[in-house]
Simulated assay, not measured.
Amino acid sequence: MSTVYEAVARFPDPAELRLHLRALAALDAAMAADPQFCLYTFGAGWGPGEEAALMDNGSGDDFSAVFSPAGVLVRGFDHESAMSPYGRDDEEVWPGVVDEVPDALRPLLDDAAFLDPGLGVPRVTVCLWRETGDTAWRAGSAIDFPPGHGSPDGSGCLFHLLTDRSPETVRAHFEDYYERPVPLDAVCHVLAGRPMTPAITAALRPAGVR
Rank of each mutant, 00 (worst) to 15 (best):
S2K: 05
S2H: 07
A7N: 05
A9Y: 02
R10E: 10
R10T: 02
P14G: 09
L19R: 15
H20E: 05
L21W: 15
R22N: 05
A25V: 04
A25W: 10
L27C: 03
A30W: 04
M31P: 03
A32W: 06
A32Y: 11
T41H: 14
F42L: 08
F42I: 07
W46Q: 10
A52D: 09
A53T: 04
S59R: 14
G60I: 09
D61S: 14
S68M: 03
P69C: 14
A70F: 04
G76L: 11
G76Y: 05
F77T: 03
F77L: 09
S81N: 01
M83E: 10
S84A: 06
E92F: 04
W94V: 00
P102M: 13
L109Y: 05
D111M: 00
A113S: 12
A113V: 08
F114Q: 13
G118T: 11
V124N: 03
R138V: 10
G140Y: 09
G140T: 10
D144A: 15
P152K: 02
G156M: 06
F159P: 04
H160I: 01
D164L: 12
D164K: 08
S166W: 07
Y177V: 10
E179K: 09
V182G: 08
L184E: 06
A186F: 01
R194M: 09
T201I: 02
T201D: 02
A203H: 00
G208E: 12
